[in-house]
């Protein structure tokens, strides 16, 4: 184990350095694997199951991108990141993209130099309290002890909310969701606050989910989306349009079950044809094969399917589409046209 690790890695690093340099897209193709940053474990969004296979909504996005670029939805290396390590991991090139329910904010975009390619989940920060506490509004939380996951925007939102309402609280900063859960269940804090989706996901794992309620207040806007490094526009386009392809597919009624038929030959709807590569050369423009979007959709289904399968109402997490319905259904999910 001694020097060989060092040496081996040095050679690999040297080889890597020789191949790299061009752009993330070429890197990924050369490597044959997509390095995708995800959370260390949030059921429904990204969590390894008992066999170590990653599953979840964010994981679905990673798999779609891998399928679009490499044609293989399993060619993904999932890199678990904490709130602390995620941005460095992306900035230093350890991962190619970050799909870790990360909020799109001004300073992350402008100051930290990342590009958010879109929004895959419109979220907001909420509060969860035990039912027997008898609290019905966040404004009644004066003097409460609040568990927060540290290193996220929720920490700042929380401070702002309580200051704006001129009530006091005591924060308990926690590193991971699992520990926050433990603290909350043990009663070491009265309230657990994080993104409403995360709260629902966490509550789903409780022994007695009905004993806990989510308060009606949503105190912040949390548009969550995948992000890449600034300045690599080609790669940025790939990730952005893969996400858009998933959204458009739902809008156009393309699902993982009917895609084989629809993609086999050009159909009557020109946009579907362009999306699935049976017409036009959108794939070529991206530097990808013509069936890139088809692969991406087949990886886990379209946006709606991913949603239903991982976090939708039929799952234990049970999130309604709400803001995340298609724009045609009164939601905010809207993809620019494929043209």
């Amino acid at each position: 184990m001694k020097k060989s690790v060092f040496f081996g890695a040095l050679t690999l690093a040297g080889l890597g350095a020789g191949v790299a340099a061009a752009g993330t897209l070429d890197d990924v193709k050369a490597r044959g694997k997509l390095n995708c940053g995800v959370t260390t474990g949030l059921v429904g969004f990204a969590a390894p199951d008992a066999n170590g296979k990653w599953e979840g909504f964010d994981v679905g996005v990673c798999r779609a991108v891998a399928a679009a670029v490499l044609g293989d939805a399993t060619a993904v290396e999932f890199v678990p990141t904490t709130g602390k390590t995620r941005f460095t991991a992306l900035a230093s090139g350890e991962i190619d993209m970050l799909a870790r329910n990360t909020t799109w904010t001004f300073s992350r975009d402008v100051d930290l130099k990342f590009t958010f390619v879109g929004v895959n989940y419109y979220d907001g920060q909420g509060f969860m309290v035990p039912k027997d506490l008898g609290v019905s509004s966040a404004k009644e939380l004066d003097g409460a002890t609040v568990c927060i996951q540290t290193g996220t925007t929720t920490e700042l939102n929380l401070a702002d909310f309580f200051r704006a309402n001129n009530i006091s609280y005591e924060p308990v900063p926690i590193e991971t969701n699992a520990e926050a859960q433990q603290q909350y269940l043990a009663g070491a804090c009265d309230v657990y606050t994080t993104d409403a989706s995360g709260l629902a996901a966490t509550r789903a794992t409780f022994e007695d989910p009905a004993g806990h309620v989510l308060l009606p207040e949503i105190i912040s806007k949390e548009p969550l989306g995948p992000l890449v490094r600034h300045g690599d526009n080609e790669w940025e386009d790939v990730v952005r349009w893969t996400l858009n392809a998933l959204i458009t597919a739902e809008e156009l009624g393309v699902t993982s079950t009917n895609i084989a038929d629809m993609g086999a030959a050009a159909g009557s709807n020109p946009e579907v044809n362009r999306l699935l590569g049976t017409e036009g050369n959108l794939g070529e423009m991206l530097g990808l094969p013509a069936d890139w979007a088809k692969n991406a959709i087949m990886a886990g289904g379209n946006y709606g399917e991913l949603f239903e399968k991982n976090i939708g109402e039929s799952t234990s997490i049970g999130l309604a589409r709400g803001l995340n319905a298609q724009w045609t259904d009164g939601g905010l999910i809207y993809s620019p046209p494929f043209r």
């Binding site: 260390t40 474990g41 949030l42 059921v43 969590a47 390894p48 008992a50 678990p80 991971t176 969701n177 699992a178 520990e179 859960q181 433990q182 269940l185 789903a204 794992t205 409780f206 022994e207 234990s316």
Partner: peptide
């Protein structure tokens, strides 16, 4: 222990 195992639905609470 602190991550995947304690976070899983089955073993949440086995410290």
């Amino acid at each position: 222990i602190r991550g995947p195992i304690l976070a899983s639905t089955e073993w949440n609470g086995v410290y």
